[in-house]
Amino acid sequence: MDLIALLAIQVLYAIASLALISVGLAIIFGMMRVINLAHGEFLMLGGYAAIVATSHGISIWIAMLVVAPIVVGIIGVIVEMTIIRFLYGRMVDTMLATWGLSLFLVGLTTAIFGNTTVGISAPLGSFQIGAYRTSGYTLFVIGVAVVVLAGIFAVLRWTRLGLIARGTMQNANMAAALGVNPPRVYAVTFGIGAALSGLAGAVLAPVSGVFPTIGVAYVAKSFITVIGGGAAILSGTVSASALFGTINQIATFATTPVFGEVALLATAIVLIRLLPQGITGRFFRRGL
């Protein structure tokens, strides 16, 4: 019984972390059809931002939840204005340019921070489930994921900004005819997507540590979550994270973490073969 409770928490945590690392990418991909291969590096920058801020005496909570998203959001807007803006509609070129950006950012952070892992210790101690102990930080990550997803839902569903965003997503020309300025919407969206990536990177930094090439570990997982999820931003991310997170955690539990990841990636390939439009291409079509 205790073991099942522990496993349930681990599965929830796997789902939450998948959803967290994917949601920024899902917003950028869902809104603008831009495949941002520098996504992993945005997460990495979020981690570094939090660590640098903490080492300058800022409280770890503020560093993770405020500083990191703002820093990475600003970087995202700069990237949009200098690179992405010129490549809308050229999906393959965007992919290549953002890959170049990803290499550049890896090189730059290696030059600045060195090729070593830096970490911050996870706050919040641990708690007891029957005979087992698990980290309280796990619950915090799950909580952050829930709050972020709920917040995105609220913004998209009930605010004017969300209305404009959904309109531009459905038909950019029509939205422009009604007085919306799509380039500005895109810039803001890219910034928000980057900020959420920064937040995710910072929140996961105490768990995984941060090093310049950590983006590689994230990027494939977040991509297949977004593509497996399909066009709808929220229901896609949630359903794909639920599926992949569960499989990953159970395979990890049965074998090793490495094969857990391999199982996740293999499932994703099969899923894309069966449902090329992603989960929300067939189910939950009316979702957000």
Binding site: I83, F86, L96, G100, G107
Partner: peptide
């Protein structure tokens, strides 16, 4: 000089520059 010796950095700049300027 150290920055220039950093292969990913230079390759990244080359890739972005070619996609944008010499596609």
């Amino acid at each position: 000089t150290r920055l220039l010796a950093n292969a990913p950095l230079v390759l990244g700049i080359i890739l972005v520059a070619f996609v944008l300027l010499v596609p």
